[in-house]
């Protein structure tokens, strides 16, 4: 009930006007640009690993030319959006929850209330917008980097024909798949932001520094679990006809 009440207040704040510009830009840059190094590194290795695993399995029955198919379906449809959500979600969610929890325990949120400033409008709305808009971009970026890494590993390390690889990717991955990835990014982004803001916002002064740790921990765990569980339902909705 408490969470639903928070969601209602957050939605009202989010859609009651444009978010404060400076706060939005700050959080968008942190969520987007700040996540790039980590996401790039991990997606490169995940993409290469996808090729390695597929090659090791398919080569037994001479199906190594199907690598593009596997990397396209497994990577772009499933792996990269979820990776972006979980990796960036953990990083972004931890930042959001810790910053809000710290503001709660040091009475900065109460100070806003006393100054007749709605903390939901000033603190929560820009964070929600920033992460909801940045995570789909990160999902798209992860698609490109992961596929490039799979391609490189398949062609340079395992001798798969590059033309065949890309032809299969084009055959199996359609524009609607990329759009589905972006859609998942929007859903995951909002989910990560609302869960993280909720845990940060409900920290109490009496919880002290431990409260910040607890809020951060819960934000990371709950965001990751929700994204992975929801991904299954979204995939069923989007791909099972």
């Amino acid at each position: 009930m408490e969470f639903l009440h928070f969601v209602r207040r957050a939605l009202v704040a989010q859609f009651s006007g444009p978010p404060p510009r400076d706060e939005f830009v700050r959080h968008a840059l942190d969520a987007g640009v700040g996540s790039l190094p980590l996401l790039t590194l991990l997606t490169i290795f995940a993409g290469m690993n996808l090729s390695v695993q597929a090659y090791g399995t398919f080569v037994r029955f001479g199906g190594q030319d199907l690598l593009g198919l596997f990397c396209g379906v497994g990577g772009i449809r499933e792996l990269y959006p979820v990776m972006a959500a979980v990796i960036c979600g953990a990083r972004i969610g931890a930042t959001l929850a810790a910053s809000l929890a710290n503001m709660q325990i040091s009475e900065q949120v109460e100070a806003l209330e006393v100054m007749a400033v709605d903390p939901m409008r000033l603190l929560v709305a820009p964070r929600l917008w920033a992460v909801t808009l940045m995570l789909p971009l990160l999902c798209g970026y992860a698609d490109v980097v992961g596929l490039a890494a799979s391609y490189w590993a398949a062609t340079e390390q395992m001798g798969v024909n590059g033309g065949t690889f890309m032809e299969q990717v084009r055959d199996i991955v359609h524009l609607s798949d990329l759009a589905a990835g972006v859609f998942k990014g929007v859903v995951f982004g909002w989910l990560v932001a609302i869960v993280s803001c909720y845990h940060g916002y409900r920290a109490l002064k009496r919880d002290g520094a431990e409260g910040v740790g607890v809020a951060t921990n819960r934000a990371i765990v709950h965001s990751a679990v929700l994204c992975i569980v929801l991904n299954m339902f979204l995939s069923a909705l989007l791909y099972v006809r």
Partner: peptide, 23 residues
């Protein structure tokens, strides 16, 4: 009610125990 409360709070200034400055 929230608008009225905010209007009323503009009559107040508050010094918190630890300052509550924005970090």
């Amino acid at each position: 009610g929230r608008e009225q409360m905010f209007a009323l709070r503009r009559k107040f200034g508050m010094l918190f125990q630890d300052g509550a400055l924005f970090d």
